[in-house]
Design a protein around this nucleic acid. Structure first.
Length: 427
RNA sequence: GCGGUCGUGGCGAAGUGGUUAACGCACCGGAUUGUGAUUCCGGCAUUCGAGGGUUCAAUUCCCUCCGGUCGCCCCA
């Protein structure tokens, strides 16, 4: 009855797993917004659901994500709808649907939110997971590729995450990629019997994945495989060089990896992945992206290019925890008000309201606890001040205010309570 | 989707085929008058993931299911 859906988790004020606490999420989200906006990317929010067809066309209907990992259902009118398994398709749909392509370009957007994939859960992998995504439309300039990559790196840096490296590659256009696939198959076929079992399975399906096989012998064979660079057009190669040069200028710590391939169909040209060590987790990839120059057209818009990335927030949080990064503490309680009988409780309502309207956080007891117990609560809540409102105080229109750090206490007239706490707090 | 492993109170964690299921933390209350720590005392699982089965008797044995976790696949 109270069971959470498999593969999902709640983000709570307190949790034995630090990274699942709201303050951690708020830190990551606010940092993301700050950095993205500094690069002049604007936040957009699209629905969690789209018509299934969009993902089939956008992400690719032969990808594992679409083929076996989507939450798909039929609505009451018989339409096929899916929970978004990634963010880009919906953003592109929005870009095309609102004819934003007719506006001055480039369009630079970012988004954050939950994505859904029906998979077995593991460390850093959930059925509902969260991504920060950025997308820039309307320019082929490799400087934009580099800045998108740099945006992600600055995000990690401002979070305090160390050791993030970005691997980059150029996967060319679909035609040259198809030629490269053929070349790989031709290369591996003679070794077929020697390859590891999973590599044999991948041979015709996705030969590029054989390149990063964990099996030693397969790896050895793969060393001799041709590089995609040999199959790229002049244009693609020049593009890769330009992106690298800009990354150098931006001071981004990158590594070129001509074996990097991405799992979604829409990528063309630049492809990249952000990597950081997450012990225990199978994957060290915390984000990835690239260009998708054909996607806007695929979704029904004009032939307009795009570049972007998606970063897995759970993985970022996990890495932050692993590196013992200190996240900002939630703000402390300014004033805990101790009350006794009905009359003092009634008066406290008024005083609490004043404090709160003045921007101070204020709290009191709602369980008719004794004073001693109320003091304990105040201590546990780390209150800066405790204001004691008893019968005597009420009669004299004053309240006893105790500074919980110094232990000093003095009587303060009701009408000076707010300013008293404000000035004392500032010391 | 496949394989391994685990499942005792809010959390951590003992335990046994048979009268009242340790202990620690947390929480609540008390140690005479309206003040936070420590200490002391007391309270807190008609119940051992769920459902069957074996047995005179099961939390302990068997089966099924559900869930967590790890690995494969794939990915953020």
């Amino acid at each position: 009855m109270s069971k959470i859906v498999k593969g999902m988790f709640d983000v709570m004020p307190k949790d034995e797993e630090n990274w699942r606490q709201v303050q951690w999420w708020r830190f990551v989200e606010s940092t993301a917004r700050t950095v993205a906006e500094r690069f002049r990317f604007q936040e957009v929010r699209t629905p969690l659901v789209e018509y299934t067809e969009l993902f089939k066309r956008g992400v690719g209907d032969t990808t594992d994500i679409v083929e076996k990992e989507m939450y798909t259902f039929t609505d009451r009118a018989g339409r096929s709808i899916s929970l978004r398994p990634e963010g880009t398709a919906g953003i592109v749909r929005s870009f095309v649907g609102h004819k934003v392509y007719a506006q001055p370009q480039p369009t630079k957007w970012f988004y954050m939110g939950p994505m859904y994939r029906y998979e077995r859960q593991q460390v850093g992998r959930y059925r509902q997971f969260h991504q920060l995504g950025v997308e820039a439309f309307g320019s082929f300039d490799p400087a934009l590729d580099a800045e998108v990559i740099a945006l992600g790196m600055q995000f990690f840096e401002e979070l305090g995450l160390k050791g993030v490296q970005v691997e980059i590659n150029n996967v060319g256009d679909p035609e040259s990629r198809a030629r490269y696939f053929e070349a790989l198959i031709a290369y591996f076929e003679p070794y077929k019997e020697e390859l590891a079992e999973d590599a044999q399975n991948r041979l015709y399906r996705n030969p590029m994945r054989i390149l990063d096989s964990k099996d030693p012998h397969t790896h050895e064979i793969a060393m001799g495989a041709p590089s995609i660079l040999e199959y790229l057009s002049e244009d693609s190669r020049a593009n890769l060089e330009a992106v690298k040069q800009y990354l150098d200028i931006l001071g981004v710590n990158y590594v070129q990896n001509d074996r990097l391939v991405r799992g979604l169909d829409y990528y063309t040209q630049t492809a990249f992945e952000y990597m950081v060590d997450i012990p225990g987790a199978q994957a060290s990839t915390i984000g990835g992206g690239g260009r998708y120059n054909g996607l806007v057209q695929e979704v029904g818009g004009p032939d307009m290019p795009g570049v972007g990335f998606g970063v897995g927030l759970e993985r970022v949080l996990l890495a932050l925890e692993e590196q013992k990064v200190v996240v900002p503490e939630p703000s402390r309680l300014d004033c805990y008000m101790i009350t006794f009988d009905q009359a003092t409780k009634r008066k406290s309502m008024e005083l609490l309201a004043e404090l709160r309207r003045a921007g101070l956080s204020a709290e009191r007891d709602y369980l008719d606890r004794k004073m001693k117990a109320q003091m304990k609560v105040a201590d546990r809540e780390q209150a800066r001040f405790v204001a004691i409102l008893g019968e005597d105080e009420l009669a004299q229109n004053t309240i006893q205010v105790k500074n919980m750090e110094t232990g000093t206490q003095e009587a303060v007239p009701f009408d000076q309570l707010v300013t008293y706490i404000q000035t004392e707090k500032g010391r």
